[in-house]
Amino acid sequence: MSSSVVAKPQMRGLLARRLRIHIVGAFAVSLGVAALYKFGVAEPRKKAYADFYRNYDSMKDFEEMRKAGIFQSAK
C-alpha cells in the first residue's frame, strides 16, 4: 500500500494574509460606491437645483401662492 502524505495547511499568518486581501477589496469597493454616488446622485442633483434656480422668481411664486389662498396672514 502506498500512503501519500498530505501537506499540512499553513496556519501561521493566515488571518493577517486574508485580512490584507479583504481590506484592499473593501477599500476598492468603497471607492467605487463613492464614485457612483457622486456621479450618479450628487452631480445630477446639483445640476437640477442650478437649473431650477436659474430662472426662479420668488416674488412671482409668492404671488401665485397668495392668490391660491395658501397664506393666512398675506392678503
Rank of each mutant, 00 (worst) to 15 (best):
I23W: 05
I70N: 11
G13R: 05
F27I: 06
R12K: 14
F62T: 05
R54M: 04
K67R: 11
V6H: 03
V29F: 08
S58V: 15
L14D: 02
D61P: 00
G69Q: 04
R18M: 12
I70S: 07
G40A: 01
L14C: 06
K38A: 09
Q72I: 01
V29K: 07
G40F: 05
K75L: 08
V41G: 02
A74V: 13
V41A: 12
A28E: 13
D61Y: 04
S2L: 06
S4A: 15
F71W: 05
S3Q: 13
A28M: 15
R18A: 03
F39V: 04
K75D: 13
S73A: 07
A50S: 11
R17V: 00
I23D: 04
A26C: 09
A26M: 10
S3D: 09
K38D: 02
I23A: 07
A50N: 01
E43Q: 08
R54G: 09
F52H: 03
L19S: 11
V5I: 15
N55G: 05
G25F: 00
L15R: 10
A50Y: 00
A42C: 00
S30T: 15
D57I: 03
V5P: 05
R17Q: 06
R17S: 01
E63Y: 13
K67E: 08
A48R: 11
Q10T: 07
N55Y: 09
D61W: 07
M65Q: 15
F62R: 12
F39Q: 08
K60L: 09
R45T: 09
D57R: 01
I21K: 15
R17T: 10
A26L: 13
I21G: 02
V6S: 12
Y37R: 09
L14H: 11
M59H: 10
I23K: 13
D51K: 11
F71R: 01
V29W: 12
Y37A: 12
N55D: 11
A48P: 00
A34T: 09
V24L: 13
K60Y: 00
I23Q: 10
Q72A: 10
P9H: 06
R54K: 15
H22Y: 12
Y53G: 07
A7Q: 14
R54E: 06
V33T: 11
E43S: 01
R66N: 11
R45Q: 03
Y53S: 00
L19K: 13
